[in-house]
Design a protein around this nucleic acid. Structure first.
Lengths: 251, 251
DNA sequence: CCCAATTCAGGTCTAACTGACCATAAGCCG
DNA sequence: CGGCTTATGGTCAGTTAGACCTGAATTGGG
């Protein structure tokens, strides 16, 4: 940072917005709120809010997460996604937002006591298919969050963050299938996951499902990276709405 | 974003800071400036500045880049890195910065006309080895930028952004070696790169170096992703002198 | 002119991994 | 019991990665 005296520092309002994903009924779902204030009153939006004095962005994101989902932050993954800064993105004026990606398992329905007008889980397919116009640039943020989540599953063990412990290899596979949007071969998936060091920690227990053979139960291992990665290579392309706003276009 | 009326929006100053990397003499170098104003007057810092009214973060980063390096933006890569928001990170008050990563080939020395007190290239090894205390949290930003650059080389074709066109496979390999900090096997590297679709576009020409056999010249291809990725699997031999799979550590 | 040094270009070989597919196991249900 | 479902494990062929080797093409020095 240089040149502090030259130009007046333009004052800016900063918010955090959260892309909170969970998997329910083998479906990737995102938490949306119905806006209670102008602008976009009544529209669907990502949960979020203003960053307060003396608060880091991470703290603000954690606070909003707790307010929206009443969730203990321990078993969920939270990471910064991107900062969005189009001067026209908020009709009230200059508002820059920093988006966060949160992944959680079996997240509860939003507590009734929150001050969001209404919060609810929606399958990303419906949230993105154009029928539901999200407020501000939240559709773009959601797309970026989805792509980030999909990419993270390739290289890290965060998929386990979607699974309540203990879980089976099948549970984990259904997470991958829900997030990526296509089926995986159960046999090859199991071989891959059980060989990745530090991903799955056997409990010795088994789970007896409604139907089918019992499955071994696992806990999350200590590894955070998936080595070697599981790349969604040449599979069936999922519902692709590639219109990412990330990356700078030059020329 | 929700709950607009509840809390006053705390006004914040926003800056962009740039981690600008280039490779010179087979060394990864970063552009630093000597601060001309308080705080940290005289200390080394990353180039950057305030975001102006009506400007996106990307635009602010591009503007700073042009001011610092007088660079035509065509052959350089610019991407958002992370937002840093510790309330104590700037003694002047509440300043959030959004860091950008820029990669360029053969970048010129900073133009004399810029208003940065002094700008200069430094090998990252010296910039990070503690002897040179960077202003603010810029050491952390630089570390994050380095890790991002290293990771990008695995999955994308940005390494070519470091190479003035046309370039040889050897040029490209030396970029990887400089950024990653260890040697690669020339033969295996060439096999990998020439097979990756859309990375290298042969020109048919050759370059006759000072010493050694002439090398075929290439241009950047159209692909932006490197498929399959080139992973620096080498990495931390936990015990023993196992000199890793693909190379020998330098640095 | 021949030789050493250097770098490029290519090839071989083996181990590992991938993806497609098959087979069996172990529950449930009627 | 046989049929259905899911888990688990194995095979097999094709691909890839890493280690290593061979030769090609150039410069520079005796």
């Amino acid at each position: 940072m240089e040149r502090s005296g030259r130009r007046p520092a333009a004052p800016v309002t900063v918010t955090v917005d959260l892309v909170i994903f969970t998997v329910r009924q083998d479906q990737l779902q995102v938490l949306l709120v119905e806006r209670g204030n102008e602008p976009y009153r009544g529209s669907a939006a990502l949960p979020g809010g203003f960053v307060r004095d003396g608060e880091t962005l991470d703290e603000a994101a954690l606070r909003e997460l707790l307010e929206e989902t009443a969730l203990d932050g321990r078993r969920l993954h939270l990471e910064q996604l991107h900062a969005y800064s189009d001067p026209e993105r908020d009709p009230r004026g200059r508002v820059i937002t920093v988006a966060y990606l949160a992944l959680g398992s079996d997240l509860p329905f939003p507590a009734a006591g929150t001050d969001a007008a209404r919060a609810y889980w929606t399958p990303i397919s419906s949230a993105l298919d154009g029928g539901m116009a999200l407020a501000f640039d939240h559709a773009a943020i959601l797309r970026d969050g989805l792509e980030r989540a999909r990419s993270q599953l390739e290289h890290t063990t965060v998929a386990a963050a979607f699974c309540p412990e203990p879980f089976t290899v099948g549970d984990l596979r259904r997470i991958y299938e829900a997030v990526w949007g296509f089926k995986l071969d159960p046999s090859n998936f199991r071989r891959k996951m059980t060989r990745a060091e530090g991903f799955l920690e056997p409990t010795g227990e088994r789970r007896f499902p409604e139907v089918g053979r019992p499955a071994a139960l696992y806990r999350r291992g200590s590894a955070s990276l998936l080595i070697p990665p599981l790349l969604r290579s040449s599979e069936i392309p999922p519902l692709s709405n590639d219109q990412s706003s990330m990356g700078v276009r030059i020329v």
